[in-house]
Design a protein around this nucleic acid. Structure first.
Lengths: 204, 204
DNA sequence: AGCCGAACATACTGTTTGGTATGTTTCGTG
DNA sequence: CACGAAACATACCAAACAGTATGTTCGGCT
């Protein structure tokens, strides 16, 4: 029972189905036919909306994955009245919220990044664009924390943000690999220890 | 001009070629025919030594990747007269040594882990076995550092090791994604900051 | 009403790929 | 030297897959 003719709806459902297929199997192993089967859309319709598989994949990065990954961080970094604490809270909240999928399937952005970066420059660029936004938001947070005297001066916010993002993705990746929460917990503990080490020496 | 008949040599060359093919494209996208072309071995020979593609892949994990990844760490963790410093040194040495490939292709173990963990339980187990050895070596290092009073008591060596491994793989992954050394440097800086935070408070 | 392009549907193609069936050659052993 | 198994070689297959050619239907605009 396909609703008569709703191009936006059709397009969106294709993107969502493609996202899940890619999230589960990776881009290269993602099967177009599976996406069609899942949505009930036909091949003609798909190739009307997207010019090929790569176009579909890149659009998934831009319109689906970008939003999913960035949203919680942009929020958390924006209203941070208490920078580091808010960040750590957003951290844990985000992980708890999606723990199920994160342990089973990892981070959709990192998955694609690891698979496609060496293999396709266009994918790499789109993925990097998302990472840069994430990193920029975190760097802004750190800079503000410095302004408040909650983070030591002399640290480069960009580099600190780099490390946090790297570490975060690494933690999620290991949780996926081990299929357990242990690496998640141990990782958060470690990252918080690192965050504490950013604070200025208490002037006792 | 195939050397008359050297089964071990043939097998080994297949494993090495398979390693590179998998390292570059991932397991699922790795082409058997490419491996045959690269080695000059024929299909009949390959399927004589390995019962299928999966068997080949799993053997690559066990006999090639395991060694490559573990060797430098096991060495560094073994003779550590100065635990943390030796570890950090092995760190940097390892990265510098293989910087080229690491930035371009990442960590072969982590690549496979991210690709295969959600998709194939057998791969996940083999990969995890390697990670556990790595983690165990690091945990041993931390434990000894505790015994020497160089690392605070009350920290769980296993969890600390978990975090370091996670973080390390995350850093390499981001270096690959961005195709730059920046994340590598920023990551090492961050990890060293973390390592310092493990030390006992200086009793001033 | 009529028309034209956007939005779909169906059937097919060409290639790539892992895997196999079958044949041949080498080598250690009795 | 015979002989049997291991080590290789060749030709082929069947399925999966992205992509296309072609046809049909809807819906807005004049």
């Amino acid at each position: 029972m396909p609703a008569k003719r709703e191009p936006d709806q059709t397009r969106k459902s294709l993107l969502v189905a493609a996202f899940w297929e890619i999230y589960q199997k990776g881009y290269q192993a993602a099967a177009i036919d599976k996406i069609l089967e899942e949505t009930g859309v036909t091949k003609g319709a798909l190739y009307h909306h997207f010019k090929n598989k790569k176009d579909l994949g890149l659009t998934v990065v831009d319109e689906i994955i970008g939003g999913i990954v960035l949203q919680p961080w942009l929020e958390a970094c924006a209203d941070a009245s208490q920078p580091i604490e808010a960040c750590a809270a957003a951290f844990r909240h985000h992980l708890n919220e999606h723990e199920r999928y994160i342990i089973e399937l990892g981070c959709p952005l990192n998955n694609l990044a690891q698979e496609m970066s060496p293999v396709d420059e266009d994918f790499r660029e789109r993925i990097n664009a998302v990472y840069r936004k994430w990193q920029a938001a975190l760097a802004g947070l750190v800079a503000r924390a410095q302004a408040c005297g909650r983070v030591r001066e002399g640290l480069d916010p960009e580099r600190v943000a780099s490390y946090i993002v790297s570490s975060f993705e690494g933690i999620i990746g290991m949780a996926k690999t081990t299929q357990s929460r242990e690496f998640l917990d141990a990782g958060l503990e470690g990252l918080e220890a690192y965050a504490l080490s950013l604070q200025p020496e208490p002037q006792s």
